[in-house]
Design a protein around this nucleic acid. Structure first.
Lengths: 136, 136
DNA sequence: ATAATTGCAAATGCTTTGCTTGTGA
DNA sequence: TCACAAGCAAAGCATTTGCAATTAT
């Protein structure tokens, strides 16, 4: 049973063949696929799964905190399995490649900024867009 | 002549009555209106301006660096006049209110993170989502 | 048994675009 | 004058939804 499947059980999310398959594909994905891409990967195993089901399932998983949705610039929503430790993303503007990173100092400063403005931070979005530095 | 109008001249953007009006409305907006809202405000002055023109104009202004587009969570694109000094945004998740802020330290750290990963930062997105802290 | 889930196609909401007429420099 | 802009309605694209048939517990 996949890790995502376990989380479904835990959250009381009813499992179907389609959901199990989508969970498996998500769990095996090391990148950040969009719904179309997920549907393609799922279809290789079961060609009868509709894209509507993929949409419904990622939404369900997201609402259950099982996957994370990202709306990076210029395009469709992309998904990844909810990580154990929070991270942010750097997107290569040339290749679309995504690099994950963690910076505790920035995280702390965000809290501080919010507090200074009279707010309690409940969510945030930090995305860096960059170009690869050529090494000589 | 509005500030945005001046920028248009500078960038060689041809001015029309509609663009002048949209520029004026944008310049007078202290919030971050979406296209619908802009169209409403524009329509109060000239009811014949079509929403397609508003879409085309904000896009043109954005490409010319005259306005900034923001895709905050959950909805339509919102616009503001390009500020002289960069700032980021904190969004009140209850009211939708937007607070602008500047934090040089975070900015610096972002550059540092990108560099450490082997990238040159060309753009970034930092949004804080929070709830107002009640004061007693 | 039966409430929830699926597949399909149609609908949605924001944004863009083709085409014809109008207009700024 | 004439390349470019505007208005309108239609098209596009990602995502959601109504409905009838299917399925999990």
């Amino acid at each position: 049973m996949s890790k995502i499947e376990e989380k479904c059980k835990l959250k009381g999310v009813r499992l179907t063949d389609q959901r199990r398959l989508i969970a498996k594909v998500m769990g095996e994905s090391l990148d950040h696929p969009d719904v179309d891409e997920l549907h393609k990967r799922v279809s290789k195993v079961d060609g009868k799964v509709s894209i509507a089901t993929v949409y419904r399932t990622v939404k369900l998983f997201e609402e259950s905190g099982i996957v994370e949705k990202h709306d990076f610039k210029g395009g469709k929503a992309r998904y990844e399995q909810s990580p154990d430790v929070h991270h942010d993303h750097l997107i290569d503007v040339n290749t679309g490649e995504i690099v994950e990173f963690v910076d505790q100092e920035i995280e702390k400063l965000q809290d501080k900024v919010a507090e200074k403005l009279g707010y309690k931070l409940v969510d945030h979005r930090l995305e860096l867009y960059g170009t690869k530095i050529k090494k000589n």
